[in-house]
Design a protein around this nucleic acid. Structure first.
Lengths: 152, 152
DNA sequence: TTCGCTATCGCAATATTATGCATCATTTTG
DNA sequence: CAAAATGATGCATAATATTGCGATAGCGAA
């Protein structure tokens, strides 16, 4: 696997988990805008490699990257947050992180992976992550850090 | 929804979750063996209704029924809206749905349950639901569909 | 039952995705 | 470094999936 291919597939995963993409051709355009010029054939193969599923919905087809996808080399919080973070609110020792669609799961996993002592646990829905912190002080530390990592 | 269609879709869900099916044509054959004679077109529509995902793997394509399967989401929303919907307005990629008293929460939940890629997220108050859409085009699709489901 | 309406479905045309093969690039070997 | 081996990609085309539209079946009203 060449470096170029790996980076392109990273870009694909990021795009797919960030936006609602409806065809390989559409994905191709987005990649071209970002400097990756490849044909649909290649994307078809990339999609297979990455196990990206094609899900038909009432309002059109959408691609989604399942748990299988980024398995090797799990994404770190600092690369995920700027992409997926939407906003954050808190109360007491709880933090509610709003993400773009389908962003909650990967972010929660990345947070779990850090095993931050300030964080008791996480619960992830579709686009919302609930963080249970150790204390209100912990909540402050965590929320500040998340905002920083997200680039806010 | 006719009884025949419902039963056929039940059969499809069972087949898909029981076997490794690689194409709609293959599924068609299995259905024929079981007494359901329909064309691949119909199966394409059933797959969409049931949100059955098409997952490419190194060893071929496979269909999988996720958690979304079944049409609870649609059923709920389509039964809720005619009851609770009052009116709808929008601006940019936002839609404001006005409902009758206490109608916002259940409608927002039903919408969330659909995981429509056009919708970034929802916020529900007492009788108002704010829908954040992916784009203005998405907003158009969503608002049209809501009006239809509501019977307007 | 008969009429009128809506949902389903098949057919054919389109659109989208997958793949065989040749070619070009990259890495490995000697 | 040269040659060979392996990997990646484009092109053309096959395989699959989706959709517009007209036909028909199913359902409720009178």
């Amino acid at each position: 696997m060449t470096a170029a291919k790996r980076k392109r597939q990273d870009a694909i995963l990021e795009l797919v988990s960030t936006r609602a993409i409806g065809s390989q051709e559409e994905l191709r355009q987005l990649l071209i805008e970002r400097g990756w010029e490849v044909t649909q054939s290649t994307l078809s193969r990339d999609m297979r490699d990455l196990r990206i599923a094609r899900v038909p919905t009432p309002s059109g087809v959408r691609y989604t990257a399942g748990e299988h996808s980024g398995e090797e080399g799990r994404a770190v919080l600092s690369s995920l947050l700027p992409q997926l973070f939407q906003k954050l609110e808190f109360t007491r020792e709880l933090i509610v992180v709003k993400t773009f669609s389908a962003g909650a799961q990967p972010i929660a996993e990345a947070i779990d992976a850090e095993a931050d002592p300030d964080i008791v646990g996480t619960i992830a829905g579709e686009n919302t992550v609930l963080l249970i912190c150790r204390s209100e002080a912990a909540r402050d530390r965590v929320s500040r850090r998340l905002l920083t990592l997200a680039g806010r």
